[in-house]
Design a protein around this nucleic acid. Structure first.
Lengths: 246, 246
DNA sequence: TCGCTGGTTGAACACGTGTTTAATATTAAA
DNA sequence: TTTAATATTAAACACGTGTTCAACCAGCGA
């Protein structure tokens, strides 16, 4: 009846008789296996689509045991939150070199890529789970803006929080759209996709991309074709979200 | 047995007897009301969490009627795809002015904001539904890069497709993270959030944000605090995803 | 008027879900 | 060895889901 990950009423053993505070038969391996399988499933299929039976099957365990260890699906997810946080924190502390190196390493390590994927799923889920991570990341970026990052300095702004939010949001974007980018660019895996985007990102961050056209020499108009019909995806550019020009 | 949105075996009436090709009692309003409710529900709660009963209730209709009109939940979603595509395309064609104006209008109009939200949900869903839209948007951005956009020109790259993918991805990011940004910045609605980010985005696109530190004058180190504990979200910046500096 | 066709509904079906429960196996302590 | 607590499981429960079905209602043509 009392799950291992039930954080409510922890450490109050007055109601029952005085029992030894140490478990006589601990087997943390199984719980860890379940946790690992859960992170993997959550990262792959998202939270609502992932089932406890699927996790149990992946961990070669009965569904009942899963909720025995973690209380509920929500409790399991919370445990996964902490696990992923810790995994990334320790992995980062392990190789505290230049940012690009550490980042590359994280994208190359499949287990780390999975953790990152988990965070993205959490970030995009309408639940409150991801907010904690977003705030954390935002604070980090704000600190980078203030004190520099990997040998670069940031141009300062009158609205540092807004600037940090902007940069943090853009920094997360490629990982969020990994699947879409992969299919569009033909890349394989997050590492390769990031390698493809990296020069453009660096160039953008260093020099920008836009420059105002000298004068009234207006650019050509954009055709207003109809929306692309299903099954002919590689048509010529037409209109879409984002506005137009005259 | 034959749904209105069943695109399989359409227009073959040889099997049954010759029946009049016109429905005797057409009431397309109801189907449209269902479609509208579906887009709204999908955009708000995502696809897996949205239920047919919820849509039916929002449209003040029975669940059976929903699938009578659209065949299945998947058919309904496909119908929503087309509906949102058309709505955005026509809305954009209606005010073919400068991009910023059109964009602002789309964010201000609640119905359009809902459509955009639907597209984001579709884009982030692991299903294939969003890919069509992403390719479409990518083509559009590639065209903008080639021919300019709203009085601006793009610096050209050796890898236009990669550059377009990068810019398209970044452009979509603020909308994807709208909820997170809203809670972090205290803004209200997509329009206000975008207004807050706009100057930083423009500045980034025009001038970049980074500049290399002159020489070996290295920037200060970043503390390696533990992960933030639950329930104290506004802590000082610590470490997180994204790498570090020495 | 009758009869047909499609819109519409309420109830039911089949199934997958998270969770509970009772029972068994296992292991550390007494 | 006995005992007690935990690990683990199989089965069942309660419920929400997408979907089906039989019936009824409304309008239109003959």
């Amino acid at each position: 009846m009392r799950s291992n990950y039930d954080d409510s009423d922890s450490k109050n053993s007055e109601t029952t008789a005085a029992r030894p505070n140490r478990a006589p038969h601990v087997s943390p391996e199984t719980a860890e296996r379940i946790l690992g399988a859960a992170v993997k499933e959550f990262a792959e299929h998202g939270f609502t689509k992932t089932t406890i039976r699927g996790i149990a099957s992946a961990a070669e365990v009965s569904p009942g045991l899963v909720i025995h260890h973690f209380g509920s699906k929500e409790g399991l997810r919370t445990a996964c939150d902490d696990h992923v946080f810790d995994a990334i924190a320790t992995a980062k502390a392990a190789n505290a070199e230049y940012a690009s190196r550490a980042m590359q390493m994280m994208f190359d390590d499949p287990s780390m890529a999975m953790n990152i994927n988990y965070l993205m799923k959490s970030l995009l889920d309408p639940s409150e789970h991801g907010q904690r991570y977003f705030e954390h990341y935002l604070n980090l970026v704000e600190d980078y803006i203030a004190h520099g990052f990997a040998g670069y300095e940031f141009r300062q702004s009158e609205d540092p929080r807004g600037q940090a939010a902007t940069i943090a949001t853009l920094a997360l974007a490629p990982t969020m759209l990994e699947h879409r980018l992969q299919e569009s660019l033909g890349t394989n895996g997050l590492a390769e996709t990031m390698t493809r985007l990296a020069p453009h990102l660096l160039d953008l961050y260093l020099n920008g991309v836009l420059e105002a056209v000298p004068d009234g020499a207006d650019t050509g108009p954009v055709s207003y074709a109809a929306r692309p019909d299903r099954a002919d995806t590689d048509s010529e550019p037409t209109d879409s979200l984002g506005g137009d020009q005259s």
